[in-house]
Nucleic acid binder design. Structure first.
Lengths: 340, 340
DNA sequence: CTGAAAGCGCTAACAG
DNA sequence: CTGTTAGCGCTTTCAG
């Protein structure tokens, strides 16, 4: 094909035939020297490479894909990048993928189911070799349906037989136990309202914990947030008014929000109020005070899901699902209850 | 092509020929009903759509690309997603791109020139219709060379005739003027050491500013950071020891770092020390105290560069370059000098 | 309005 | 070890 550039000259992207002709060999030989799949006489190989370099030849991606049925791309779907933890996940995926020579096609949906479906359908046209979705708003079965026959992995989903899942209940116990030991008895929790795919709901774990401690549960201490700082900011105030001496936010961003509210309201953390988050968000050390949190071992989780996906793409049998146990990271936002 | 799934059944991805045969029409008619480029008899069209739906047909991406030479993908290159401001940029690109039906192939380089080149070369095989790079470590000319003939836009670059650039000097003046008015005379600045493509160096602007004020400049107040919070953390201490009463960090992440250091060192912000950042990082309202900063109008910048790129892809002439003037956003990290 | 045929650029048997 | 020959699935003239 020839392309006219604005400068008026005509640049023609040279193809494998051109190189073959110029080097006086056949297409297959050129193909072989580039793919390295077959041995090519060093002399001719060099000649070919020389010509290719001179002409600025690059094997055309789509043509290769069409012939080999391999795109070496993976579609990754997340809601948005506003949460630094999500960015960390995306970044970690990119690394895990690149290690295996795959590239990442990133789709953001901003919580829109429609957009998610749209992306899945497009990915399903053979745009990618596999898909990873973290979308809470589109359940596994539907994701599979929209994407067609492409291998698909859903992030930390209980339902989908994903290769790795986080033991949320263990994480919750971990946080609650920490607070309990510091003497807190009125512990507020801000859970994530919209979390499909994630297994048992946080509040159930909370109730179980309190039962185990022989403690009656005050339902008014259990509220649902939308994952953004803003909702921590609002709910922090609510929970404080209801007499909480500690707040467990189910993600760090909301934890940041309660920290911000506390600061403005003049309640001291951790002297007056303890707060723990969850994620181990990259920013958790930068807020004031640095946030105690339940760690999410991002790299481990992404590595396992990518490995699982590639296994599936390459036809290997699925491995045992791994249950990742989160750990507590104590920083400065938690301390003993003050007894007035 | 047929694919054997692990369940033993054979799923064959149906192609346009299959649909044509089943619907009793020719390939071109099927093609036309899908692309909508030509009128197709409603009856026939419906029959085709019915068959296609029943068979789960999807036009194959690579084949279409090969035939049309349009990938509808744009490669975006950034160093990493650790800085929430970078994430905001990426997110903004995704939106601007999606609005025009383009998808985003995201490459991260972690500051590695090699990785950047590698990505550019791969993009250059026809994987994308255009490229946007924000990489400071690979200069425009080299980026063009590695990517071949693909349209390429570099983020806010002075050198590259990009459609939008930030007026850095104006931003610096803005910050400095604000501090000056608050009575600060010993103002430390943490600039970004590795910023190619970005125009005049920050320290020069600083010197010009001070000259204008008739103020001798103390070179020891000018230090270079690496853009991460850690370097703000260290350099904050250094600058404080050198007697700075205010610090201007050339990005918010470093600003967060000096805030963190100050807090640990017991220096109060803004009573003892004022700090201003630059970016208007999404996290700037969440740190304590909320950071005064020089705004980077991310959406505007991305919209302009995307528009410029698409213009170039579709052969439209380049438009006038726009100079974006950043503005000051005053929050709580700056205040009047204290005179001891 | 619909069909036939010729590619797009590359790979993959299969011969030589 | 190298060349020949078919496609991969879709678009696109160009006739009918």
């Amino acid at each position: 094909m020839t392309v006219a550039t604005k400068s008026g000259q005509v640049k023609s992207r040279i193809s494998i035939d051109g190189i073959a002709r110029l080097a006086g060999v056949s297409k297959s030989t050129v193909s072989n020297t580039f793919s390295g799949r077959k041995f090519v006489n060093p002399e001719v190989r060099e000649r070919i490479q020389e010509v290719a370099a001179r002409m600025g030849y690059r094997p055309h991606y789509a043509a290769k894909v069409l012939a080999t049925r391999k795109t070496m791309m993976i579609g990754v779907l997340v809601s948005e990048l506003y949460n630094p933890n999500t960015s960390a996940i995306v970044q970690s995926f990119e690394q895990a993928l690149l290690r295996r020579k795959y590239k990442m096609l990133l789709g953001l949906t901003y919580g829109s189911r429609e957009r998610g479906i749209e992306y899945l359908e497009q990915f399903g046209t053979g745009m990618v070799d596999g898909i990873i979705t973290t979308l809470p708003e589109v359940p596994f079965r539907e994701a599979v349906r929209s994407s067609g026959t492409i291998p698909l992995m859903v992030w930390c989903s209980v339902a989908a037989g994903s290769p790795a899942i986080l033991d949320h209940e263990a994480g919750i116990n971990c946080a609650l136990e920490h607070l309990w030991e510091l003497g807190h008895r009125r512990i507020g929790m801000i859970s994530l309202s919209s979390c499909v795919n994630v297994g048992p709901v946080s509040s159930e774990s909370y109730v179980r914990f309190m039962n185990r401690k022989g403690m009656p549960v005050d339902e008014s201490l259990l509220v649902g947030g939308d994952s953004h700082a803003q909702s921590g900011y609002q709910l922090g105030s609510v929970l404080w008014q209801r007499g909480a001496t500690a707040i467990f936010a189910r993600n760090d961003l909301m934890g940041f929000g309660v920290l911000k509210w506390a600061r403005e309201a003049g309640v001291r953390v951790p002297e007056d109020l303890s707060v723990v988050g969850a994620d181990d968000n990259p920013m958790a050390t930068l807020v004031a005070p640095p946030l105690t949190t339940i760690q999410m071992p991002v790299d481990q989780l992404t590595e396992l899901t990518v490995r699982g996906l590639i296994d599936q793409i390459e036809g290997r049998p699925p491995r045992q699902q791994e249950l990742i146990i989160p750990r507590l990271i104590v920083r400065e936002s938690t301390g003993p209850v003050s007894h007035p």
